[in-house]
Amino acid sequence: MDLSNRPYRSVLYIPGSKTRALEKAQGLPTDGIIFDLEDAVAPDTKAEARGFVADALRDLDYGSRALMVRINGFETEWAMDDLAVIMASAPDAILLPKVYSAADIEKLAAILDEDANCAHTKIWAMMETPLAMLNAREIAAAPRMAGMVLGSNDLIKDLGAQTDPARTALHTSIGLCLLAAKAYGLICIDGVYNAFRDVEGLQVELDHGRLLGFDGKSLLHPDQLAPTNTAYRPSDAEIELAKRQMAAFEQAESDGKGIAVLDGKIVENLHIVTAQALLAKADAIAASET
């Protein structure tokens, strides 16, 4: 698979302390896995969990899935121990929680730079604090950055806000996060939906997230995978339209015209760029599922 087009429709959190879940994840239809050493792991099991995750990364087969480890934040006593153990396994990325500014990313990048095993390991940032949102642009531009994950729960807590289906309290934060990520070519993943049995509520957030431009959604439970993968997969109608737009534009160019008209709508080069990206994403998804 061309990793530049790697899909991130679904990114599933797996508690690092649960060996059965680590093993089961090998067969789950998730595009990415976040091996969690932070919120999902109790303080007295963190040392054990980081060993389990390092072993899983070394010994288990997760195929083409994107593999990242959420370590504990630098303000804790566990972060450096997490890195000392995990870096030897060279995950695709380290997901850093409690990011406040580019300085946090720069600190992690400097540590990774010192280990030859991590030459290709990227950094993802949990965007879960008001200060992170105000510094989103500089965070996105920091070294080794490849993605951002919206931390909805922490944001709601820090804002002292309430939740509603429209996610009104998060509108500004979501906008800032998406703008920064897209400006610097990063993947941007929507936050979790806590009520993992609530299929209808999840679907509302999936539709909302894709409408806004998220690349996928972070998930808490395997039952959320199927609807999420479907929501972020280009539909047959979208694929057909993209192909027709490209054909119409190619014909217009051969006729010496700069634009085409399809179904009564103008088709310009910007539409072709979007169509090409959509078809590349569809191909990448198909390749990941074979």
Score class of each variant (00 low, 15 high):
A103P: 02
L83D: 03
I111Q: 11
N135E: 09
V85Q: 11
K46M: 02
E77I: 00
A56Y: 08
P97N: 05
D113W: 04
D158R: 08
A109N: 09
W78C: 05
L155M: 15
A49E: 08
G151Q: 01
M80D: 13
I139H: 08
I71V: 15
A49C: 01
L150M: 14
R50H: 07
A161R: 03
T76R: 10
G147C: 10
A132Q: 07
R58H: 14
P165A: 12
N135Y: 03
L83V: 03
D81E: 14
R65C: 09
P130F: 11
P97L: 02
P97T: 03
R167T: 01
P91Q: 03
A136N: 00
E106V: 15
K107S: 11
I123G: 13
A79V: 10
L96A: 13
D115P: 00
I111K: 06
H120V: 01
V69W: 00
D113P: 00
R144M: 04
D104T: 02
L134R: 13
A54Y: 11
D59L: 13
N117P: 02
D82C: 11
M80G: 03
F52N: 09
L60H: 08
G51M: 07
L131D: 11
M87C: 13
G73L: 04
E48G: 03
I94P: 08
L131V: 07
A40F: 03
I94A: 09
A140E: 10
Y62A: 04
H120C: 00
A93K: 00
M127R: 00
D82E: 12
D164G: 04
H120N: 15
Q162E: 15
A84T: 04
